[in-house]
Every structure is written in structure tokens, then in C-alpha cells.
Computed example of a mutant assay.
Amino acid sequence: MLETTRMIKRLVCVSLVALIAACGSAPVAPGFYRVERGDTLSKIARSHRQSVQSIARWNNLNNPDSLEIGQVLRVAPPNGAASTSGAVRSGNSNSNGNPGASASATPRSAPDDSASSSAPASSISLVWPTNGNVIRTFDGANSKGIDISAAAGTPVVAAAGGTVVYAGNGLRGYGNLLILKHNAEYLTAYAHNRVLLVKEGESVAQGQKIAEMGDTDTNRVMLHFELRYQGRSIDPSRALPAR
């Protein structure tokens, strides 16, 4: 019985990894980095223009030489914290130009996910996934989607019809997450929800309520919304109607 339980757990883990790979790599928050094979703390610090000491301090690393593949590290200063490197990260601003408004909260794609602003987003027509104020826009580097702020519990709807390919909170950095597959080329992702209202494998219609806005794995109530074309994050505003 014990061996059977272990086998089931292994199969579940393998399936989850395969799912995220199929969705174009699991997102992590801006200001964070997912450790890859061959990474060292000094290499990560250099590529993010930070000091080893700062990254070790922000992540409470007792042994900076002990990193695990897939581990998520903060590589930008937390709100109100200073970096000993003095480096300033570009792109960590909201639509009003305020630096770091949601740097610790917004999921983005893994480092090997290339963003593109020239993908044919016009070939898919989206509706706004929720009502609220856009507090962060797509920049293709630190923000691989848009952030929309509103009250907790605000309905989140499917931006287009499709199938739920991920529904859960087992992946660090973006809380209760939904990923919808619309066709062979397009996916949308909805992060930080308070509650998920659909399950994996379920078909949803455009405009159908699928979640409620929340603040899971973030420092404020908001929805982080991404559009992906062939696995690449693209600017969702190009496929959304004007407000």
C-alpha cells in the first residue's frame, strides 16, 4: 500500500511538470528567478546586477553554495529594502510610473520564455478578464502580462473560450492559478485568485466566471493576466478591446 501511494505521488509530480512544460514554462514573479541547471549564486547575481550578499539575505540562504534546480529566488530588493549592489532594475513600475508597485507579486514566465510584442495577437479576440484598474502593463522583460486591481472577490472571467489545463496553487510565486488553452497556439493565465471555480479538463465559454480575484502569493488584491502565443508571452492588450 505504501509503495502504491509513493508511485501515485511520483506520477502526479511527473504529470504536473509535463503540464507546465506544455504551457510554455511555469511563471515566476518579477524580481524573482527560477534556478536552472548549472546556475551558481554568483552567476545569478551578476546577471541580475545584484550582489551575492543581497540575494543571500533576501532569500535567507544559510549556505549560498546550496541551490536546487527549480528553486525560486528573489533577485530584486523587497519593497522598502535596499540592494548593496546599488543596481536599479528597469521595468519595475506601474502604469503611473511608481517604482516597484507590484514587483514581489506578479508572476512572469521562466527565464527561457522569450517575450514578443510582434506575435499575431490579432488572430485571437479576448474580452477583459475582470473589471478594475490596470496597475501594471506588459513590457516584455519584467512584466510578461498585465496586472488589474479591484476589490477582493471581483469576478474573473475567461478571456476566450477554451479548456482548463491547469487549476491549482501548487506552484510557487503566483498563488491560485488557472491556465486556459484556447487552441494549438494560444493560452491565457490568471494568477493570484482568491478561489478557483473551474477544474482541470473543464471546457469554459468566453466571459464565463472562472475565479474570484484575491491576493494569494502577492502583496495586494489583483489579477495577473497573461497571453501566450506558441509558448511566448505577448502583450495581451493588443487582443483586448479598448476601454
Rank of each mutant, 00 (worst) to 15 (best):
S118L: 12
S85R: 03
G170I: 10
D113K: 10
A105I: 06
A141Q: 08
T163W: 04
P155A: 08
G173E: 02
L61A: 15
A152T: 15
G70Q: 04
L67P: 11
P120L: 03
S104N: 13
P78R: 04
P129H: 05
G153Q: 01
P77S: 11
G175H: 08
A158Q: 02
S109I: 12
A152S: 14
G162L: 03
S122Y: 13
Y174I: 00
D112W: 14
I148S: 05
S85N: 00
S102N: 15
V164L: 01
S102R: 14
I69G: 11
A105E: 09
Y166M: 07
A150K: 02
G132E: 05
A151S: 15
N131H: 13
S93V: 13
G132Q: 11
A151E: 13
N96E: 15
L178V: 03
G170L: 01
T106Q: 10
A141E: 07
L61C: 10
V75N: 12
T84Y: 08
N63L: 11
T130F: 12
F138Q: 01
N79T: 09
N94M: 07
P64D: 01
G145E: 04
N62D: 14
S66G: 07
R172T: 12
G70C: 06
A160F: 04
A167F: 00
I69H: 04
V134S: 08
G173C: 05
N79S: 09
S123G: 08
A82V: 13
A105M: 06
N62V: 07
A115Y: 04
N62K: 01
S116Q: 10
A110S: 15
D112S: 13
S117G: 09
G145Y: 08
D147F: 06
S90W: 13
R74C: 14
D65C: 05
T137H: 02
N133A: 12
S109G: 15
V75L: 09
R89V: 10
N169M: 05
Y166L: 07
S143R: 03
S118E: 06
L126K: 03
N176G: 08
A167D: 02
N142T: 14
K144L: 03
V134L: 10
L67E: 07
R108E: 00
N79Q: 10
A87S: 06
